[in-house]
Simulated assay, not measured.
Amino acid sequence: MSDTSATPEDVRHVADLARVDLDEAEVDEFAEQFADILGYFDALDEVPHVDREVDLVNVMRPDEERECLTREDALRNAAETEDGYFKGPNVS
């Protein structure tokens, strides 16, 4: 794909960082795959740079203050409540 290469040492280093044990066949296979992946990054260098001004526009609506639910209304459809709060399953 490109002249970019990944050595078996590079693969072993990445595998060591990821705490992955690889045998020699896997190291060779991943070296080829790493080279292909790095080739894709090389292709990004060929994309032309476009100069333009970025017009940022806020697409969010402004916050509106509204009356909130009462505690009773909020808890009305809850499966379980306790002391005026939602009650969920115990997490151990």
Rank of each mutant, 00 (worst) to 15 (best):
V59P: 06
V20K: 05
Y40S: 05
I37C: 07
R71L: 10
A74W: 04
D55Y: 07
M1T: 09
F41E: 04
V50A: 14
V14A: 10
L69Q: 14
M60P: 00
I37N: 03
D45F: 15
V27E: 01
D51W: 14
V57M: 04
V27F: 01
E29Y: 05
E24L: 07
P8I: 05
D42K: 12
V47C: 00
D63S: 08
E67K: 15
V91A: 11
T4V: 11
D28I: 05
G39M: 00
D23Q: 13
F41G: 00
E29G: 05
E72V: 03
L38V: 03
Y85T: 06
H49W: 07
E26G: 11
E67F: 07
Q33H: 14
R71M: 02
P48H: 04
E53W: 05
N90W: 09
V47H: 03
P89A: 11
A18K: 10
L56N: 07
D28V: 08
P8H: 01
E29V: 04
D55N: 15
A78Y: 06
P89S: 04
D21N: 15
A74M: 09
E32T: 08
V59H: 10
D83C: 02
A31N: 00
E64K: 10
S92D: 14
R76L: 05
D28L: 13
P48K: 08
N90K: 15
E26M: 13
Q33S: 05
V50W: 02
G88H: 12
S92T: 12
E32N: 15
V27K: 02
A74Y: 13
D45H: 15
D16A: 15
T7D: 11
D42M: 12
E9K: 12
M1V: 09
A31P: 04
R19Y: 04
P48F: 03
C68R: 12
T70L: 03
E65W: 01
P48T: 14
V91T: 14
L69G: 00
R71E: 01
R52S: 10
R52H: 08
E64D: 10
V27S: 06
V11T: 00
Y85R: 14
R61W: 04
F30H: 08
M60C: 04
D55C: 01
Q33G: 04
H13I: 06
G39C: 01
A74L: 09
M1N: 13
D36P: 00
G84V: 01
A35M: 10
L38D: 04
S2R: 10
I37A: 13
A18W: 09
E9V: 11
V54T: 11
A15E: 02
R61I: 02
C68L: 13
E53S: 14
R19L: 10
A15M: 05
C68A: 15
E82Y: 03
Y85P: 00
